[in-house]
Amino acid sequence: MYETIVVPTDGSSQSDAAVDHAVELARHHGSEIHVVYVADSNRDSLTTQGGEVVDALEQEGEQVVSEAVDRADAGTDISGDVLTGDPVETILDYAHSVGSGLIVMGTAGRRGLDRFLLGSTTERVVRLSSVPVLTVRAQEE
Rank of each mutant, 00 (worst) to 15 (best):
L113V: 15
V6E: 06
L102W: 11
T4V: 10
R43A: 15
A68C: 07
G61I: 07
R124S: 12
V7Y: 05
E60H: 14
S97D: 15
D40C: 11
E89C: 01
L46G: 13
E3F: 00
H28V: 05
V131H: 10
H96Q: 13
V125P: 03
E32Q: 13
D114T: 13
R27Y: 02
Y37D: 05
V38D: 10
E62L: 11
Q14A: 15
D55W: 05
V35T: 04
S100E: 01
G85K: 04
F116E: 08
V69F: 06
T90K: 04
E67F: 06
V38P: 03
G99H: 02
A26L: 00
V136H: 08
V131E: 08
E52D: 14
T107H: 08
G61L: 09
L117Y: 10
N42C: 07
T4M: 07
E89S: 13
E52K: 14
E140D: 13
G75W: 08
E89K: 13
E89F: 01
R71M: 08
E62Q: 14
R71G: 04
H21I: 00
T4W: 00
E60M: 12
S129W: 03
V19E: 04
E32H: 09
D70K: 12
V98C: 05
V131C: 12
D10N: 14
I78G: 04
D44Y: 15
G101R: 13
I91L: 02
D40L: 10
E24Y: 00
L92C: 08
V65A: 06
E123H: 09
R127G: 08
A74R: 11
L128W: 01
G119I: 02
T121R: 05
S79Q: 10
P87Q: 10
G109A: 10
L83K: 14
D20G: 06
Y37H: 15
Y37Q: 12
S66M: 02
R43K: 15
V133D: 01
T121S: 03
E58T: 13
G51D: 11
A39D: 13
V125I: 05
A138W: 05
N42T: 15
L25W: 01
A17I: 12
G101W: 01
R124M: 06
V38Y: 10
M105Q: 07
R27N: 11
V6P: 02
G50Q: 09
A68P: 02
M105F: 11
S41T: 14
A72P: 01
E32S: 13
R43D: 15
D44T: 14
A26W: 01
D77S: 15
V64Y: 03
S31F: 00
V69K: 06
R110W: 04
S12R: 01
V54G: 07
V133R: 02
A68N: 05
D40H: 12
V136E: 06
L83G: 06
V104H: 10
L117G: 11
A72Q: 01
D93L: 06
L83I: 09
H96I: 00
A95M: 09
L102I: 05
R27T: 12
A138P: 03
V36P: 02
V88M: 03
T90A: 10
G61A: 08
L134T: 14
D20A: 12
D16Y: 03
G51L: 05
V38F: 09
V104A: 09
Q14M: 03
I33G: 03
R71A: 11
V126I: 14
D20K: 10
T9R: 03
G112W: 05
V53K: 05
S120P: 09
